[in-house]
């Protein structure tokens, strides 16, 4: 095993080929390749992200609707369901606003990344 490793390292054919056969692309081509690859990744990533985001929103709306229906049906604390829904809507608004406010920096970074 040891000999095999040594042989591989000192193989004259390998040295000869590595010194003479490797083709190197131009710096201009490398630059173009970098930009094209990054652009391609961003497009595919943003498409994937948009799909997942849409699916997440649909699932969230369905779950919240079911929760509200349960809440109205059960009439907790014997309070008027309209009032419960109103309080719930206020809490949801405060939560959504909080999340929006706290993630503004993260969204700004993402916007730079995808444009």
């Amino acid at each position: 095993m040891m000999n095999n490793t040594k042989d591989k390292k000192t193989d004259p054919l390998k040295c000869l080929l590595q010194q003479n056969v490797m083709d190197t692309p131009t710096a201009d081509f490398s630059d173009k390749l970098l930009h094209a690859s990054m652009a391609s990744y961003r497009v595919s990533y943003s498409k994937k992200y948009q799909k997942e985001e849409r699916l997440g929103k649909v699932i969230l709306v369905i779950l919240i609707s079911f929760n509200l229906m349960m809440l109205i049906k059960l009439r907790p604390f014997g309070v008027d369901p309209v009032m419960v829904v109103g309080i719930f809507a206020l809490l949801m608004f405060l939560f959504a606003f909080g999340v929006h406010y706290l993630t503004r920096k993260l969204r700004a970074v993402n916007k730079d990344f995808f444009t």
């Binding site: 490797m22 083709d23 692309p25 173009k32 390749l33 094209a36 391609s40």
Partner: peptide, 29 residues
Amino acid sequence: KLAYTLAVKICKNKEDAEEVVQDAFMKAF
């Protein structure tokens, strides 16, 4: 480098090899 060398060895043409490497990197990324 290896991707380009491989493409040159098959296409035997530097312009085609550049196109191949660019396509391959974009697909892989």
